[in-house]
Amino acid sequence: MPTEIQLQDRPDEEYRDQLFDVLADAEAGDTFDVVADRDIDPQLVRYQLEHDRSLEWEYAHPDAEPRELRVTVGEPLADDSLGTIDVRDLKPQRRHEALLGIFDDLAMGEGFVLVNDHDPKPLYHELKSMHGDVIEWDYASKGDGEWRVEIVKTGDSEATDEDVVTRYDVREIPKQERHPTIHHRYGMISEGGTMELIAPHEPRPLQREFRQQYGDAFTWEVVESEPGRCRVQITKTDSTSESEASAADDDATAAPSDDESMEVTEELDVRDLPPAQRHEEIFQAYADLDTGTGFVLVNDHDPKPLYHQFDAEAGPEFRWTYRQKDPGEFRVLIGKAEPPAGGTPDEETEVPF
């Protein structure tokens, strides 16, 4: 029977010590039910690094408060092996928060194995932009819902003390990956958080795109500008004209009029699925569509980051129309229309950098 570890309402100095003391006395196969008032993923990775002992853990519910998870103690790590964190059951926002915290805590030469349900390459760009060229990134496996990457900090971090949630040097990101990467990560930032972009010049087309997508719900500040380098800080705010922003967003993602005649084949409700399974189910449903058909996606939050991923990858026949936007219930018609005459668009379509 699992032993309970109660970590709620503990001072910071006791939090990690209590967890480590209990785990240190455990044997392989022992299980613990941990209740905490914060994410403990960084502490569990740190334990593996310091004690050369593998751990596995699974949350009872990815979004529940307090955090409840079951931790299983594994065998001692082999020489040169790294501790592992499997983030497939975490919501995307918590994935990035946990992984950024873990990397911040690494000393030079330390690392971990990341397990994800899709290629986590955007994280590589994020870490490199924030810490400099001190990341060793090696794929151990790719595809089939399980991507494994060995991540090692190879030098001292070049991170600054500026109060930003994340930073991307878009000069280092392939052009066709820039839009999906920026919008996907921006969608995870909480109100008041700041994203910093480093570009070869001020990305005014991106600013116009943000205005179209997010209305007045952000501020845009150029904090540095010199030839070949421009730093822009984008802060997510509470829009004072929410209805206008919503209308702009609907215009940006609304489908052409042929969607009204599109045949709806099913309703796909992913609210009860673990985050790791949602994208797989949605993309498979899209792949199974015939031309002129679609399905209604039901989600518990605005799936806008998914829109940008589809928009970048699915081609001109992709359609997306919001049908409902309520707290806890968003409905979107996702469809596959007839491709435009003349074939697919030019793959070298310019992006705003």
Score class of each variant (00 low, 15 high):
residue 243 S to W: 14
residue 121 K to I: 15
residue 299 N to T: 02
residue 187 G to Y: 02
residue 205 P to C: 07
residue 76 P to Q: 04
residue 212 Q to A: 12
residue 66 P to I: 06
residue 199 A to N: 06
residue 211 R to F: 15
residue 167 R to H: 15
residue 284 Q to S: 11
residue 34 V to N: 00
residue 329 E to V: 04
residue 309 Q to G: 12
residue 228 G to F: 14
residue 210 F to S: 01
residue 69 L to N: 05
residue 278 R to Y: 05
residue 22 V to M: 09
residue 44 L to W: 04
residue 169 D to R: 01
residue 307 Y to R: 00
residue 345 P to T: 04
residue 178 R to G: 02
residue 217 A to C: 05
residue 107 A to M: 12
residue 41 D to Y: 07
residue 125 H to G: 03
residue 330 F to R: 09
residue 265 T to N: 09
residue 141 S to G: 08
residue 209 E to D: 13
residue 243 S to T: 14
residue 149 V to N: 00
residue 114 L to M: 00
residue 311 D to Y: 11
residue 202 E to T: 05
residue 267 E to H: 07
residue 288 D to R: 05
residue 214 Y to C: 03
residue 304 K to F: 14
residue 186 Y to N: 02
residue 247 A to L: 15
residue 159 A to V: 08
residue 246 S to F: 13
residue 202 E to S: 04
residue 4 E to T: 07
residue 115 V to L: 08
residue 226 E to N: 06
residue 128 K to I: 11
residue 78 A to W: 15
residue 235 T to I: 06
residue 19 L to Q: 02
residue 7 L to T: 01
residue 203 P to L: 04
residue 279 H to W: 15
residue 19 L to C: 03
residue 269 D to A: 03
residue 188 M to A: 06
residue 315 G to V: 04
residue 297 L to Y: 02
residue 334 I to M: 00
residue 64 A to V: 09
residue 80 D to I: 05
residue 117 D to F: 04
residue 73 V to Q: 01
residue 199 A to L: 09
residue 26 A to H: 04
residue 271 R to S: 08
residue 325 K to C: 14
residue 237 T to L: 09
residue 292 G to N: 04
residue 159 A to Y: 10
residue 182 I to H: 00
residue 201 H to M: 14
residue 103 F to M: 03
residue 231 R to S: 10
residue 168 Y to T: 03
residue 329 E to M: 08
residue 262 M to A: 07
residue 257 S to D: 15
residue 127 L to V: 01
residue 81 S to N: 09
residue 79 D to M: 08
